[in-house]
């Protein structure tokens, strides 16, 4: 992966394709159904870093789980590398990172990273070599023999990222991976994730609540709205690659943060009902 320049975007290079996806859940109690996602169309190209952002309950995690075949769509299709998501999962094309590291306490850090390779019945020597390589990538080489519970939260999450990369996944699915970390650690982890992404060239789908995080990390930000969950806006992040701490101080960065924020707020306004909300919308529309 080159360090600079715009992302490559030939149409044939689509990794994830969601077409006309609806997802409904049975509502508790009254036998009705809650529409979690409606009419989702989304194409993600190889090597992209796409962030899903939106208010709580907008279905961004559900969309991520649909891509990863941890749940199925009610209507529509999700394909990964041209195959149904289900086949892609059986083909082990995913790396998952959750909000919590969910490491196995009874395994050392190194053996946690080896876990997916064990499931794939890879030989021991290969597993160990790969685990060491990945721990070096996330800068945890000295901690291979530690137990997960002996590491800090940020370090544990880095182990989880190393584990997710073990299978060399076609696509890395990250569900608010840094949501439980403090702001300082989070910014450091953002930089580290970008470095890993640029080194590995993996396609990343990333769910977050944080606008600055979304802008800093992504090549594209997908803005979603709640009830029903829909994609309302897709914002290209044209900041150059090789982003660093300074990127957060660039004029264009602030413009994009504002753009994402307004896009989210526009959604809120559109959905607001009643005179109080209308009043607020009118006031916000007044002086800039």
């Amino acid at each position: 992966m080159t360090a600079t320049g715009p992302p490559p975007r030939p149409a044939a290079d689509v990794v994830v394709q969601a077409s006309g996806v609806d997802k409904e859940f049975p509502a508790s109690g009254h036998g009705g159904r809650v529409v979690a996602l409606q009419g989702i169309d989304l194409a993600i190209r190889r090597g992209e870093f796409v962030t899903l952002i939106g208010p709580s309950g907008c279905g961004k995690s559900t969309l991520l789980r649909l891509i990863g075949d941890l749940t199925g769509p009610t209507r529509g299709t999700v394909t990964v590398n041209g195959k149904p998501a289900h086949e892609a999962r059986l083909g082990r094309e995913y790396g998952m990172v959750f909000q919590a590291p969910v490491l196995f306490d009874w395994r050392t850090v190194e053996r946690n990273v080896e876990l997916p390779l064990e499931v794939m019945r890879r030989p021991r020597a290969e597993r160990q070599a790969r685990a060491r390589e990945l721990l070096a990538l996330v800068e945890l080489s000295e901690f291979g023999r530690h137990r997960p519970w002996q590491l800090s939260g940020g370090m544990q999450q880095r182990v989880a990222i190393a584990r997710a990369l073990a299978l060399d996944p076609a696509i890395l699915l990250m569900d608010e991976p840094f949501g439980a970390l403090d702001e300082m650690t989070r910014e450091r982890m953002n930089l580290e994730l970008l470095r890993i992404w640029e080194r590995t060239g993996t396609t990343v789908v990333f769910v977050t609540h944080s606008i600055p995080e979304a802008v800093f990390l992504s090549t594209r930000v997908v803005v979603m709205s709640a009830r029903p969950g829909r994609i309302t806006d897709v914002i290209e992040i044209d900041l150059p690659r090789g982003r660093s701490v300074e990127t957060r101080e660039v004029e264009r960065y602030f413009e994009l943060v504002t753009e994402v924020r307004e896009s989210l707020r526009a959604e809120e306004r559109e959905h607001a009902v009643g005179p109080a909300a209308g009043e607020r919308a009118r006031l916000e529309g007044l002086p800039a």
Binding site: L70, R92, V102, F104, E118
Partner: peptide, 27 residues
């Protein structure tokens, strides 16, 4: 076992036996 660890094993397309031996029993 944490439900997310079960999902993690699912994302590796792990079989019932692996889920039992590598996750459920140790947990």
């Amino acid at each position: 076992a944490d439900p997310r660890t079960i999902e993690l094993m699912r994302s590796y397309a792990a079989g019932t036996r692996d889920v039992l031996l590598k996750l459920r029993l140790p947990a």
